[in-house]
Design a binder for these strands. Structure first.
Length: 420
DNA sequence: TCTGGGGTCCTAGGACCC
DNA sequence: TCTGGGGTCCTAGGACCC
């Protein structure tokens, strides 16, 4: 038996946690640069606001009915960590699936529903985050059960055990294929073209025939719907295969030094991610693009990849290659809206191939510099020590006018209480 | 004025090996 | 007249997830 615990409207719930006055209020959380809607409270969903809507396209009348937040990932990440920590105490094995979702192994549980209801209650009490849980024998069914629970279609409130449904077929018949995990609009269309529109029809279809037409992913889905597990619980996350840091700019960047500053920042962040996971990159791709929505000028997007003599996680090396690569892509007169760095084909730092001709002492010095840098930033706060190149300009900085002042990760953000 | 960020997996085809 | 068989590796593109 598996359970999928999924936080309800996670980012919106995180913001509401520190604003209890917003209980019952429609809440939106926006993407970087306050661009798109990426989280909605139930009340906001009821207003018909779709996921991914560009905020500026929202009708003013609607905007007046919602409380809006810029995204605050430091807060969401920290609360996610707390939720997962609590969940880990309730199951012998868990798989963290995303920032707000987690699979739990319920093996040996005498009464899964009662147990999960207890988890929901305790999570609410200890972290303040509302959660729904779906229980089933496969990941796909657990996802579906979770979805039904969120829709209020479980007799047990926030928890739904698929195996206790008296008529699971009726639920499958009422589930469009696009609502299944792994089936999005595109695949949905192709399934419909084959005469399969609901989950029930998919479950009854011939797996081999589907494999021929749509591939192994859809075949697995059929078996999963039938209760035959094809997607195992993966307790140990496999090492990352790539790292990517990219941002849209707060405003168009037209100065080379500002683009360089942004890339310095991105490469630094990428290096931090590598070192945090003990990985090294054998190459770096840098890309820059103009505004794809600006129809008055031609869109320009280009990328450059440089391979290193040996894999590295040294921010200084990454910065060098990112800026050198971008210099070849840069065209004077363009207004850049977005850029990023991509590190592919990651290898464990200690196992990467070496360079026969390189001076081993030089790589060692670099590694020690990074260790000192990371240590200082750990002790005195993130970004206490930075590379000079990023202190140029501000147009590339993100726009975030609506960030809540709440933080659970910075001492100086603690609320001050005065007694008189 | 204004449109996110960061991942994974699968498949087909080409190039190469013996 | 007649032209093998069985692999691996890499890449690009397409699709999905939250």
């Amino acid at each position: 038996m598996l359970a999928l615990a999924d936080c309800n409207n996670f980012y919106a719930s995180c913001e509401r946690l520190f604003r209890p006055d917003l209980e019952g209020q429609a809440i939106l959380v926006l993407s970087n640069n306050d661009g798109c809607v990426i989280a909605r409270s139930n009340e906001a969903k009821a207003l018909g606001i779709a996921m991914g809507t560009p905020f500026f396209k929202l009708a003013p009348a609607l905007r007046r009915q919602v409380v809006v937040f810029s995204s605050n990932y430091a807060l969401y990440g920290d609360l996610s960590r707390r939720v997962m920590q609590v969940l880990a105490g309730f199951a012998p094995r868990i798989e963290v699936d995303s920032i707000d979702e987690c699979f739990l192994d319920l093996e040996g549980s005498a009464d899964p529903t009662a147990e999960c209801l207890g988890i929901v209650r305790i999570l609410r009490q200890w972290t303040g985050i509302p959660v729904s849980i779906g229980i089933a024998s496969t990941k796909t069914l657990a996802k579906l059960a979770n979805r039904l629970a969120k829709q209020g279609r479980s007799p047990d409130g926030p928890v739904l055990d698929w195996s206790r449904l008296t008529d699971p077929e009726s639920h499958l018949a009422a589930t469009p294929v696009e609502d299944l995990w792994g089936i999005s609009q595109r695949w949905g269309q192709r399934l419909r073209a084959l005469g399969i529109a609901e989950a029930l029809a998919l479950r009854e279809a011939d797996p081999k025939w589907l494999r021929q037409h749509l591939g192994v992913v859809v075949e697995r889905l059929v078996w999963e719907l039938r209760g035959q597990s094809c997607l195992a619980l993966e307790e140990m996350a496999p090492p990352r295969r790539q790292v990517r840091v990219s941002r849209s700019f707060g405003a168009a960047v037209t100065q080379w030094v500002e683009l360089r500053a942004a890339l310095t920042r991105f490469a630094t962040r990428a290096g931090e991610k590598l070192r945090a996971q003990g990985l090294a990159a054998p190459a770096l791709t840098v890309f820059i693009q103009t505004d794809p929505f600006d129809t008055s000028r031609p869109f320009y997007s280009n990328a450059h990849t440089s391979a290193f003599d040996q894999p590295t996680s040294d921010s200084a090396v990454l910065i060098h290659h990112a800026t050198q690569g971008a210099k070849r892509l840069w065209r004077r007169g363009d207004a850049y809206r977005k850029a990023g760095v991509l590190l592919p084909d990651l290898v464990p730092a200690r196992l990467g191939p070496g360079d026969f001709f390189a001076d081993p002492a030089e790589a060692e010095r670099g590694a020690r510099r990074m260790a000192v840098l990371d240590d200082i930033n750990r002790r005195f706060g993130r970004d206490s020590l930075r590379f000079g190149g990023e202190f140029v300009g501000t147009t590339w900085h993100r726009r975030a006018r609506l960030t809540s002042s709440v933080s659970t990760t910075r001492w100086e953000a603690l609320p001050v209480v005065r007694a008189r």
